[in-house]
């Protein structure tokens, strides 16, 4: 009984743990690159959450190949909608990474450091 409960929630709990790791890293790390890494983990764990929504026991990939047999039934295939949403989210994630790294390079060029406190220090001058 307990095992069932844990198994039913396990994926969701892992995603919570990952979100917490990412979130904590994003907030506390002083190094901007580390912040970015935390942000990536955060985004990726949200994607994990979505994919977990879409998963379906005893079902197969959402590619409907049995054209000649009867009409496909929804229970046999994994829900494709979260996958689509997450494709978009991944793309957004890459774009974010790209812009963030650009800003990072710029910051390093101008202030010679990517540590948050040192940048603030440099800005005060």
């Amino acid at each position: 009984m307990m095992m069932d409960f844990i198994l039913a929630k396990f994926n969701y709990w892992v995603y919570v743990v990952l979100i917490m790791i990412g979130f904590y890293g994003m907030m506390t790390k002083k190094n901007l690159m580390k912040k970015l890494i935390g942000m990536n983990i955060f985004q990726w764990s949200i994607i994990l959450f979505y994919i977990s929504i879409g998963s379906k026991k005893n079902a197969t990939l959402p590619i409907i190949m049995d054209i000649h047999s009867h009409a496909p039934s929804a229970a046999d295939y994994i829900n494709p909608l979260p996958h689509v949403l997450m494709l978009t989210a991944i793309v957004v994630g890459v774009a974010t990474t790209g812009i963030a790294l650009t800003l990072l390079v710029l910051i390093y060029k101008r202030y010679g450091t990517i540590e948050e406190d040192e940048v603030i220090e440099a800005l005060k001058k």
Partner: peptide, 10 residues
Amino acid sequence: IWTEMGAVDV
């Protein structure tokens, strides 16, 4: 993990 969950495209 995603492959394992059937989200091949992702």
